[in-house]
Design a protein around this nucleic acid. Structure first.
Length: 493
RNA sequence: GGCGCCGUACCCAAGUGGUAAGGGAGCAGUCUGCAAAACUGCGAUGCAGCGGUUCGAACCCGCUCGGCGCCUCCA
């Protein structure tokens, strides 16, 4: 039974979908005027895991994530670069998919764009004007917050408090400083659509109301996004949507915490952000490995709390992951021993139970990961005592299935650290795996394997001095050799 | 000024009334030609500090100190 922390009520609540076995979930995506940073990645990843977990619980999930593709910042960026807004948004939508794809974040069921929903936006705005909740001034349309008594419910703010703190220039034409634009008349050269109030473009908040209602209906289950969207964005969405439809809007509001750097929020204005592609470019690990490191790192803290980004944190994630992949490597090796086979399923069951309980508890991914660590520890002991090939395969499959919810352990090419080296003279069966887990620079795989062959020949002749020379020279390149009892070796970086 | 969050071992991080999960790093040992991996053992009598409530508190209440977020575009 899944429990969620609902920002609307400030409490953890049992999740009950409107329709049994179905979930409609809307998450605010990004404004596409620049590359995404690791904070965007966290938000995207958290809701990707929400979606995966709901699916693994048997729900049919309709997951909608929008792109804001009309906005002041986009217009500004297009003017700076002397290109069309369309060129800007196309470029960064593609970049979004590239970056998030590297993190294993799945494409949503629907990924609507604001510009594809202008008719819906106009219709929604018209209804608000007709109901007297919005007013028109010189081609602009504003939502009148004073007409909506529930305003402030989500963010737990009162209009009076907001007024006291407001330090923005107040548009004299607005009836209340907190009134916000549903529709903006356009200046020459800006993107514009025809509307009952003249040519213009949508305000920021209305698009999400329009798109969520269009794709999920007037009332739906879950609405998510970063904590910084609670006010004013989500507050305004609620006001517009409920004001217009007279019905409840989203029932559960879920917000993820920030990625920080040195205890401070990562943000563009502070200049302390790292883009996703920058991290991949700087990584000494392959793309696949880097993606999994980031995923592990981002899920190692509960989604609601802050998360401090640092090189050390990534290094720790890599080390933790090494433990799993070292085990997977051993699980791929054949074994005729069966001592532990009978108690294997107990260990697996134990892990399943704690894993599910953790995610049921408001998607507690750190505890879920701890459950997987527990299984790793158990299986290490079992393999030591003797686990058959079948048992090894079974438990690797279990890691695959459970890991899938978090997007971890999905590579069938198990060599996270490096490829397995076949005994001398035997065919190299593992060539398919060579691209995995390899640092982006350094010795090539064939160079390493040649040296390893030479070393194993030396070892066979008890020429340990030469063998150690090779070990040390490979170590200088960051290559670690593991000798197995049968005289063969494997290596990793 | 208003609203809210956080402070748990060297680092990361769960736990929100019943006596401190898990990971990383470190140290010692077993194994190993060496090494790595794995295994075994060690590590907070205490959860920012001080009071209070309770049979019992990291968890509840109050105060203090320190850090942060939102109120303005922001994942």
């Amino acid at each position: 039974m899944l429990k969620l922390f609902n920002t609307l009520t400030g409490r953890q609540e049992v999740f009950e979908p409107i329709e049994p076995n179905k979930v409609g979930m809307y998450v605010c995506g990004v404004t596409v005027y620049d590359y995404c940073h690791i904070g965007h990645a966290r938000s995207a990843l958290v809701f990707d895991v929400f979606r995966r977990y709901l699916e693994s619980c048997g729900y049919a999930v309709t997951f909608v994530k929008n792109f804001t593709d009309v906005d002041d910042k986009i217009i500004k960026r297009a003017q700076e670069q002397g290109v069309s807004c369309d060129a800007v948004t196309t470029k960064y939508i593609r970049a979004y998919h590239e970056d998030m794809g590297k993190l294993g974040i799945r494409v949503a069921t629907e990924e609507p764009k604001a510009t594809e929903h202008i008719a819906d936006i106009i219709q929604l705005t018209e209804r608000l004007v007709a109901k007297g909740l919005a007013y028109v001034v010189d081609g602009d349309v504003y939502f009148e917050v004073a007409k909506y008594p529930e305003y402030g419910r989500l963010s737990k703010r009162r209009l009076e408090d907001l007024q006291a703190g407001a330090r923005v220039d107040v548009d004299e034409r607005k009836r209340h400083p907190m009134d916000f634009a549903l529709w903006k008349s356009s200046k020459p050269g800006e993107p514009a659509w025809q509307s009952p109030w003249g040519p213009g473009r949508p305000g920021w908040h209305i698009e999400c109301s329009a798109m969520s209602i269009r794709h999920l209906g007037e009332t739906f289950d879950i609405h998510g996004g970063g904590m910084d969207l609670i006010f004013p964005h989500h507050e305004n969405e609620i006001a517009q949507s409920c004001g217009s439809t007279g019905k409840d809007f989203a029932r559960y509001w879920v917000h993820n915490g920030f990625v920080q750097v040195n205890q401070e929020k990562m943000s563009k204005s502070l200049g302390n952000f790292f883009t996703i592609r920058e991290i991949f470019e700087k990584s000494e690990w392959s793309e696949e490995v880097t993606g999994e490191i980031l995923r592990y790192f981002l899920l190692s803290t509960h989604y609601h709390g802050p998360l401090d980004f640092s090189d050390q944190a990534l290094k720790e994630a890599k080390n933790a992951l090494n433990g799993f992949y070292d085990l997977f490597g051993r699980l791929a090796e054949p074994s005729g021993e069966t001592e532990s086979d009978q108690i294997l399923s107990q260990a697996i069951d134990r892990c399943r139970v704690t894993f599910k309980a953790a995610l049921d508890d408001d998607l507690n991914t750190p505890v879920a990961i701890a459950a997987l660590q527990g299984l790793r520890s158990d299986v290490n002991k079992l393999t030591e005592k003797g686990l058959s090939s079948e048992g090894r395969k079974k438990v690797r499959q279990e890691f695959h299935v459970l890991g899938n919810v978090l997007g971890l352990f999905q590579s069938d090419k198990w060599q996270f650290g490096g490829p397995f080296v076949a005994p001398i003279g035997q065919a190299r069966e593992t060539d398919v795996a060579l691209s995995v887990g390899v640092k982006q620079s350094g010795l090539s795989d064939s160079e390493i394997e040649d040296l390893l062959r030479e070393r194993n020949e030396a070892r066979g002749k008890k020429h340990f001095k030469r063998a150690d020379e090779i070990r040390h020279s490979l170590a200088a390149h960051g290559i670690i050799i593991e000798d197995k009892p049968d005289g063969t070796s494997r290596w990793k970086r």
